[in-house]
Design a protein around this nucleic acid. Sequence first.
RNA 1: GGCGGCGUAGCUCAGCGGUAGAGCAGGGGAAUCAUAAUCCCUUGGUCGGCGGUUCAAAUCCGUCCGCCGCUACCA
Length: 509
Amino acid sequence: MKPTFYITTPIYYVNGAPHIGHAYTSIAADVLARWKRLDGFDVFFLTGTDEHGQKVEKAAEAAGVAPQVFADRVSADFRDMAVQMGITNDDFIRTTEERHRRSCTALWQRLADRGQIYLDAYEGWYAVRDEAFYGEDELAKQPDGSFLAPTGAPVEWVREPSYFFKLSAWGDKLLELYESHPDFVGPMARRNEVLSFVKAGLTDISISRTSFSWGIKVPGDETHVMYVWLDALTNYITAMGYPDENAEKWRYWPADLHLVGKEIVRFHAIFWPAFLMAAGLPVPKRVYSHGWWTSEGEKMSKSIGNVIDPRALVEEFGLDAVRFFLLREVPFGGDGDFKRKALISRLNVELANDLGNLAQRSLSLIAKNCGGVLPGLGETTEDDQNLLAGADALTGEMRAKLDRLAFSEALEEAWKLIRAGNGYIDRQAPWALRKTDFPRMETVLRVLVDLLRAVATNLRPFMPASMGKMLDQLGVSAEARGFADLAQKLPAGVALPAPQGVFPRFVEE
RNA sequence: GGCGGCGUAGCUCAGCGGUAGAGCAGGGGAAUCAUAAUCCCUUGGUCGGCGGUUCAAAUCCGUCCGCCGCUACCA
């Protein structure tokens, strides 16, 4: 039986349209999901939308439609984005679905039964205009003694009944978790922040609201709806069948990896495991956060007009180039700057020149000189053996990097091999061997095919369509494209299709 | 204010105790199988400043300067 691997993106909040940040998280998760499938795992990959809360209620009102209608519309847009980005999620969960209401209700009940929830009042400085609470230190004192929110809105001290979760009781258990599972939160910088946050002492958190109604009703007290995070985080177990722990999918829980943006690390690395421990459920194995993208050196904003629309990018450059660029350009975990010039440079230099051209020159030599048939491997030299050893080692090298979520480094491993391939073909000059030592030429070309096959197979999770095309041209059958299949060498003599460029150069108009 | 991170070639970054590295960009040469793609060689850095520990410091410690993150219920 295959080992399971359960990976999630956050569920995206439907108060706005999908942008590059959402696409980035989804693509990273998708690469891992595809990688694990090729690596022999039974993968479950979840994404979806978060649809409750005051902001959605308000946005719907502004749009003049019912919240559900509004949520349906935006959720469908996120689903479309996932399709456009080539995301291979196994399920798409929506927090407005009945299965999720049932799951949240059951989790709440379970927490309540275990004495983890109590009714009190949430009080604080509230700005009616912003419909938000502010901390004392965020406020500006006015000459007349009143206070203003950072937004300039007047605030007043209000008191609202609310259910609380006993988060304060779980600090030590959380610290034990971080201690015994050093990889639980990553990257390191975020882990440190989480640690210092918990060490500073946790207070109980409010988990219900009475000030709006677009949410899941608290069981036994319908004047309250559950507050965002308890509702949202629960999606990860809803999709596994919760509360039915005999569900067929429950075997995937606990999740192997929650991929998140850095702004929601706290909720995933502190609140979520606390909720689960309090409920007596297993906690996820890992939470890993990535950074944010700026655009041409500036924060993305509608007013500057530099917001990057992932679907427009794909339209212009192609899906695989975009997927590749996002994971290649920036070390995962840190922030990145999206520069159009950098994307074009990566596309032309690394995809077209380094990889595409290597495949094209190797394959056209075969087409012209070997009658379009895959040559066999003759006697090998040390140069050949070194290259083949590099090809054989690639999966292992990349796996080690991807286990650390180091996407850019994993890709660098592939490019080291590709560069070595370009050095090799020049050194061996098969176009000269054609006249002097034909069998030697065949061996050289065969070494190149084996190298390209390893590269294309290992890069498939990143660039599924183009690497599929490359494998077609290399004569690799559709059933022999997993990592384990690389051990089985291609039979000599199979006919190869006419070579065709996989990555055309991008020329700016 | 407190806690944490970062500052290394023009650019993006790796190295984290033992004579400064990679990719891109720049310069020179070779080759012409290939998407005018490729290969080889090469210019370039007092590793943010100052002090200390050490036979030896980008690498450890202190301090200063400059950026950045976190500092609770805001996807």
